[in-house]
Design a protein around this nucleic acid. Structure first.
Lengths: 351, 351
DNA sequence: GAAAGTATTGAAATCGATTGCAGAGGGCCT
DNA sequence: AGGCCCTCTGCAATCGATTTCAATACTTTC
């Protein structure tokens, strides 16, 4: 009685209910195909034996794992974690499990990711990283059925994957435009990581806004950064050493904007009096920072949810989606107190 | 040639290498048991066929999923996400996948969590939520082999589970002590969620520190909160309406501390001039907030890593761990600028 | 009342690996 | 030469479900 009992299987249920395993299986998954009486006997048997489905066995037979794999660069990043959250909700709703995989390790992880997918542990991949080199992920043109993939957040240019993302370039343009509308003429940009596609798009959007307003981009006003607070903090020093300083900055994201502001405080530069800053992401802390941060809010929940939806749709019916799906979600400017009119009348680029 | 080829199985490899599937299996997992020549033929066959292991089939046979399930209250919370990150690293290192499950839905999720575990999709559970009602999770006293469980972050009092956590009470005591040492006598506490064990322990630690210093706890100085920024923000209003205001606060976590500070700014109360605040967690933004936040830093990476280690150890050898493991990690006070001496000499509780 | 259709069930194959057992072959010892 | 041990390999069972196919009983229809 106290020995480690084996977990009950469908065989045990069948024996107890005096039916075949086939009938038990049907009673549980297609009740309409089984008579009332049998169904009751099976239910009772399940109750008594304490039977629970062995998902592994089902997966093997049905060739589906009812699991999706989410690969992302960094779970700690609040931007990703809130998307992951939305993905998890949607997946759970539709009966899918969520496997997560960090992508720190570069090359090694590619192999791992590939094996993961090809090992039937997951039915599809949700990739949250455009920097990822997909050519190494020989999942597509392999001599086997293609694995469903959806790329979210960042676009992988000619990969042909379904994509769900936000309007990074356009949003950056609007953020910058906001600064211009306030009267700023000397506007700088705190860059994101050099090889990150999202960062590049935001940079491009920034440039477009300047151009449309007839402002010349000034190379020294684009300060190096990498989305992290420390990089913004470090950029403050470089800002101070500029001969002709911008009165406003568009930061590639909120984190670097916060680091930047924090660094500027060290030099006695106050926002928005001396400088205006607009960020990107609308992190949770943005409204409670000092000053509350003007920023572009990305629809993170929608992004995660729609990406998960698309992936699961594709898994459940590969023909359901159009050959190439590309959803672009619109970000929203949230004006708070980190942006204002420039102190002095402003005459544009340095002489 | 262009038809959807089936993914190659071990049978295909065996056929190509002209050996049995048993030999292929051994060549891949116990190479020492196979002759040099055969091993080479198998390798070649694997290369040519493009074979990858079907983990599901292996799992079924070996009765292990090489996957752990991490259940947590909220992935978005940066505290949890960084622990999840550490867990993922450790698990990956040891060849385990990580399934995540949010626990929003209360009752429904319990059932789900239970099925998840009993369905052989995961070999063990890492639970990051002490508020969770484990009695419903009939995994322990079921009439079957017990599922390995490790509880991290929060303790579940008499559950008998292995536990890895930080010294919440003791750390809260030290945080409060820091305020006392600075000369504060009127010290308040911004509470965490009422039924959260961690919050209670911090509250208890707070009280102990006061007591040891001969200070009487004042009920009105404990402001309601729930770990979220908004709750801290709201608490600021209640603070302002106190007849006799504390000169220092110990906030149950950084987020609520930040919300509180943000709320206080609305009333022109400046930190640390008018009030000192110490938080808990050392969020990424803490050093870059204005003022930089004094806080208790929890060893989050270590916590996640050790919890994952313990769980995987338990999975791989149930007899390896002592009957009851309880690891307590020490938090560290990080003094920044949100705490200072009280402005006026301070004489303790109101008359 | 016979034929056709429908509802219900079971036997057995199947998914793709691992593994216990046994057999073949070779080397070594007595 | 015979016996023993060791290495290498294959056969076939096994993990726990699903699913095809066929058989049976029961209705319905003409």
């Amino acid at each position: 009685m106290n020995e480690p009992k084996k977990t009950p299987t469908i065989q045990d249920v069948a024996r107890f209910a005096k039916v075949s395993t086939a009938t038990v299986s049907r009673a549980l998954s297609i009740p309409s195909k089984v008579s009332e009486a049998t169904r009751a006997r099976v239910s009772e048997a399940v109750r008594v034996t304490g039977y629970t489905l062995n998902q592994t066995a089902r997966s093997l037979r049905q060739r589906t794992a009812r699991t999706i794999l989410v690969a992302l660069p960094d779970i700690r990043n609040p931007f990703f974690s809130s998307i992951l959250d939305a993905i998890e909700r949607e997946a759970t709703l539709r009966g899918y499990g969520v496997l997560v995989l960090n992508l720190y390790f570069g090359r090694q992880t590619v192999v791992q990711l590939r094996d993961f997918l090809l090992s039937n542990r997951a039915d599809g991949l949700l990739l949250l990283d455009g920097a990822f080199d997909v050519s190494q992920l020989q999942v597509v043109d392999e001599q086997r059925a293609p694995v469903p993939v959806v790329v979210a957040c960042e676009e992988i240019p000619k990969s042909g994957f379904h994509t769900v993302l936000t309007d990074n370039g356009e949003a950056a343009e609007r953020a910058t435009r906001h600064l211009i509308d306030l009267g700023h003429r000397r506007i700088g940009h705190l860059l994101g990581p050099e090889h990150n596609i999202v960062a590049r798009e935001r940079h491009a959007g920034f440039n477009r806004a300047l151009e449309k307003a007839g402002l010349k981009p000034v190379a020294e006003w684009c300060l190096r950064g990498n989305f992290e607070m420390e990089s913004g903090f470090a950029a403050a020093g470089r800002y101070m050493s500029l001969p002709h300083r911008p009165t406003a900055f568009f930061a590639a994201n909120d984190e670097s904007a916060i680091g930047f502001l924090s660094g500027l405080r060290q030099y006695g530069v106050t926002c928005p009096r001396d400088i205006s800053i607009v960020g990107f992401d609308d992190l949770g802390v943005a409204p409670h920072y000092d000053p509350p941060l003007t920023t572009m809010r990305q629809p993170r929940e929608a992004l995660g949810r729609m990406a998960a939806e698309a992936l699961i749709d594709m898994i459940e019916d590969p023909n359901m989606l159009p050959s190439s799906l590309r959803i672009v979600l619109r970000s929203e400017l949230v004006v708070r107190e980190s942006t204002g009119r420039p102190a002095a009348p402003d005459d544009g680029a340095p002489s």
